[in-house]
Computed example of a mutant assay.
Amino acid sequence: MALVRMGVLALLWGSTFLWIKLALDGLSPAQVTFTRCALGSVVLLGMCLSARRGLPRDRATWGHVVVAAFFCNALPFALFSVGEQTVDSGVAGVLNATTPLWSLLIGVVIGTERRLHPARLGGLLLGFAGTLLIFAPWGRAGLVSWGAAAMLGAAASYAVAFAYMGRHLVGKGTATIALSASQLLAATGLSALALPLGGLAPVHPGPAALSAVLVLGIFATGVTFHLTYRLIADEGATNASTVGYLLPVVSVALGAIVLHENVGLRTVAGMAVVLVGVGMTRRPARPRAHAEIAAAPAIEPAGRQ
């Protein structure tokens, strides 16, 4: 099931850049961030109600939820919205694909990846190399810019959040659907605090921008975020972050199938390298790292959210 969730997550998450770009035609970055968090939280609260799962009640859990909401939602969502005003999708894809490398570095620092298998390390590096091959950023403008720096900061923020969620929230007795719902609810509150900074101006979004922000909030934020939580619970932060390498593959494939875009030999080769790299990272985590998150599946019996 984890591989299925990873595939669905890649499909949904891989379209995020498109929806953000379209939404920015009628909304400011602060408005896009707030709206996607609010819509995503409504979706997940509905899923909680359907599954009869209550939100956390203790202050300690909510404290961790707020920290995770800042690094996994409010901050990176804002940085991606700001960055996409000036950075093209190719460069954005490359910078977003650095998340697994940041996760690896953080895992080494905090001790969860202290004995990283050479094959997994090689897979992480190979996946990033394949992403570079797909987008060839050396032939694109905008790699060194404030927008690119914002994207890189967002990727690093995701990595920090994944590690924090894996250590302080997953496997602590609260169902992942409740955690994801409460975290997006907290992110909605945090992003609302940023609305005075360019988010209170009147808006007149057209049909395309309105549709884009709806899809972004409901599917690319709400559904995607719950799948992300489940993947972290099942496989740990570093393995979960490797889905970032599949995003450029998905975007290129959808462009070729839906928009009939030309896919050259370099792109095909890059996609193959990415898939090989992701396959290499699928080696089981060492026992100690796995034990930290192994309790999560036991919290939610099969067939429940």
Rank of each mutant, 00 (worst) to 15 (best):
M1D: 08
M6S: 12
V8G: 01
I20E: 00
I20H: 00
T33C: 14
T35V: 06
R36S: 07
A38E: 08
S41W: 04
C48N: 08
H64E: 05
A68Y: 03
A69S: 09
N73H: 12
A74T: 05
F77V: 02
A78T: 05
V82N: 09
G83R: 07
Q85E: 15
V91R: 05
V91K: 03
I106E: 01
V108D: 00
V109K: 04
G111P: 08
L124M: 15
I134C: 02
G139M: 00
A141T: 12
L143H: 06
L152T: 14
G153H: 13
G153W: 07
A155N: 09
A156G: 10
Y158S: 05
M165D: 03
G166A: 13
R167P: 09
H168M: 11
V170E: 00
S182P: 02
Q183R: 07
Q183C: 06
T188V: 03
L193R: 07
L195Q: 01
L197M: 02
G198N: 07
A201G: 13
P205S: 07
P207Q: 11
A212V: 07
V213S: 02
G217D: 09
A220C: 14
T221S: 12
V223L: 15
Y229M: 15
I232E: 06
S241R: 00
A253F: 13
L259F: 13
L259P: 05
N262S: 06
N262F: 09
L265A: 13
V274I: 14
V276H: 06
A289F: 07
Q305R: 15
